[in-house]
Each structure stands twice: as structure tokens, then as C-alpha cells.
Nucleic acid binder design. Sequence first.
DNA 1: GCACTATAGTAACGTTGTTTTCATACGACG
DNA 2: CGTCGTATGAAAACAACGTTACTATAGTGC
Lengths: 220, 220
Amino acid sequence: MPARPTDGTPYAAAHAEGKRALRTLALDTASTLLEQHGPAALTMRRIAAEMGCSTTVLYTIFGSKSGIAETLWREGFARLRTALEEARGPDPLARLAAMGHAYRRNALANRAYYSIMFQRPIPGFQPSEQARAESLEPLRVLADAVADCLDAGVFERGEPDYIARVLWAASHGAVSLELADYEGAADAEQRFDDLIGAAAAWFMPERPARPDVPAPRPRP
Amino acid sequence: MPARPTDGTPYAAAHAEGKRALRTLALDTASTLLEQHGPAALTMRRIAAEMGCSTTVLYTIFGSKSGIAETLWREGFARLRTALEEARGPDPLARLAAMGHAYRRNALANRAYYSIMFQRPIPGFQPSEQARAESLEPLRVLADAVADCLDAGVFERGEPDYIARVLWAASHGAVSLELADYEGAADAEQRFDDLIGAAAAWFMPERPARPDVPAPRPRP
DNA sequence: GCACTATAGTAACGTTGTTTTCATACGACG
DNA sequence: CGTCGTATGAAAACAACGTTACTATAGTGC
């Protein structure tokens, strides 16, 4: 016989809401810590201290640190999905281009989340199968936009899923190097646009006009 | 007055060689540990135990764990550079394509190193400025091959450095997602080829013939 | 009132990177 | 040859981490 309040009573609702509030507070704290001090600052003790409770609470809510990491991981993909969904454009191709910019903008605005999603800054954390499945939703959003382009004849051939994965890899590659600041991100935006444009053009019946590239190189 | 043997004596040479041997042994041990058991197994105590000494030795040689990580980081980029340098082809474009495959092959064959290079599995490790500069060498190798393509007229316009960075981002994006096994790596190789091909084609005067893509999608 | 369960705080355990302590070995120098 | 000083390495200690008992308490159902 459980000590949990009987379901349906007003008290049970309040009780459940308290738990939700606790969970939300924990996630907010973890999220703030992550964004302001990076993944290294994301320790159980620190989250608990910031909340003003002991670490036990975190373990009853999330089970382990991986539980928190997974929630943040999913939050990162949820933000990405929302960012992609909000992309608009007068025609399918413009909408796809808007998605590209949304991808980059979201990554730059949520660097810490992006690192949790695609790097492995939290030792021992591996997303569950369910979380992995969920993380494919942004890709599905992208694939829908690609399908629209195929229907409109903007793209010539190929499976929407496959094309979306190619575009995804292009976005990720460009953004990933930009975030790593691997080689001075001076022309990072142009590189992003070029790579995405190149990948998209690859699937079009005719290659579209390319934006200006740095001055032509003199040939000897 | 130091207890270090006077420079120039045979003993000094032997002494220095002993230090080199020790350093090499430590790196070999760390490297093996990294490749066989992943970054998580790369602990100071374990490296020391595997070598048969105490952790103090590692600290006198490398200063800190980051010192070891940095050496492995550089080793990873050195392998990548070698892999790219060894790429051959009958003409500039073929050589560039060979470099693309070399990039992917090297990454797949050295997953642990690739993760050290582009993920952050070792908390607190950040490559030094010098190491970062050194890590740009593979990019320079790529840029040289791009320059050859420009000279040969295979590429139409653009700075070799810039084009190389775009190709680099494409390679990294495709390989990175493949290694993360982000969405089933069934057609990972084709995706890699397509993305690299698309990026390269972007800078050519005429779009080259594209290899076959999955069956055309029926339009409603 | 009583038993039982869920929860939270305290303190511990084992492991990590790192530092300290201490002993020892060995070149330099009187 | 003996002493000094420095470099080096082993052992242990330290701080911080994730995690797990242990304990107390509060609240539900009988």
C-alpha cells in the first residue's frame, strides 16, 4: 500500500505539480549552469547547491547524471526542431534556405546544447534509444521541406530522406568547424552558405547561379 | 649547480635517450589504451599501471593529463596529414577525390583519435595555440591539392584556402555524423561521396556528371 | 495509533586528477 | 673520497566527482 496520495484528489494534483516544479527547477538550473559555465560545470553537487538541496533529490528525479544529460540532449534537439519548423519562405527552396540559416543560428545561439548534442563532453553519457529516435525529428522536418522541393521540381531526383541527410551533414560540418573555431571563423557564414548551396545545387536539374566568390585567382 | 649530466657527454646522450624512451612508452601505452578501450579508459593511474610505474612519472614528463591529451591530439592530426599526403591520382581532381576518401578512411580507422580531435571527451583539455596551429597542416595539404586544381582549370574561381575549408567542412560533417551513427550509417559512404562531390562541383566551371542517385521519386 | 512508503539530508565509498612527502640515486665539487 | 644539491620516483594525501547506504521525517491507508 503506497504512501502516494490517491489519484484524482486535489492534493494528488498539487503533489504532482510540486514534483513537476522541482523537476523544472532542476532542469532550469542545469540548463543555466550549462550555458553560462559550460559542460564542465554541470556537476551533481553544483546543480544541487545552486538549487539549495542535496544531490539525493537529483537522483530521485533523474536516476543519474546521464538522466539529466539526456534531458538536456533532448531539449537541444527540441530547440533545433522548433528553429527549423519556424523557418518560412515564399517558395519551397527559399524555405529550405531559411532552414539552413535557422540551423546555424540555433547552433550559435545554443553552443552549449550543441556541444552536448554532437560532442561528448559528459563522460559516460549515451542517449537512450528513445532519445535517439526523438532526435531524428529535426531531420524529418528537413526532409519534409526537401520533399516539397522535389514536388515543386526544384530538386530533380533522389529520396527526400537521403537529400535531407546530405544537407544535414553539410550544415553540421560547417557549423561544427565554426564552433570549434578550428581555423578562424572569419568567413564562416559565407562558407556555410556556399556549402549548403553546393549541396542543394547538386540535386537540382540545373546548377543555379552562384553568389560571388572571392576574387578569381590569377592563373600563371 | 644542477645534477643533470653535463651536456655533450655520452652519458648525457644515454640519459636523454632514456627519457625519450620513457616518453615514447608512455605515449604508446596511452595510445593503445585510447584505441582499445576508448577515451574513458585514458586515466593517469591506468596508464601508469600499464607501464608499471607511478603516476608521478607521467606528471614529470607531461605536466598534466592535458599534456598527454595534447600529444595524442597532435598525433591524430599528424595521421590525418599523412593520410592526405599519401593520396595519389592521375590528375589534380582525381588526387583531390583520393584525399576525400583518405580523410574518411583515416577517420574510420582512427575513431578514438578522431574523437579526441573533434569531440571533447577529455574534460578540461584544450589544445595549446601551437598545437592548434599545427593542426592546420592537413588543411594546408588539402589547399595545395585545391590550388593544383585551380591551376589545371578544374576549378574556376575562389581562393584555394577557402575552397579547402569548404571541402574540409563537407568531409567533417559527413564523417562526423557517420561516426556518431546518428541516423543509421547504411548509405554513409554514398552520402560522403555525394557531399564532397557537390562541394567540389560548386567551384567548377561546369557541373560534372553526377553518379546515379537512388531511383527518381515519382511526382504526383 | 500503527505500519509502511516515499522522500530528503548526511555521510560515506570508490575513483578521478593532482600535489605533497619522503627516500634515493647520481653528477658536481671540495 | 665524501659531501652537497638536484632530479626523480614511489606512496600517500587531497579535493572533487558520481553514486550509494544510512537515517530521519512526513504523510497515506488501515
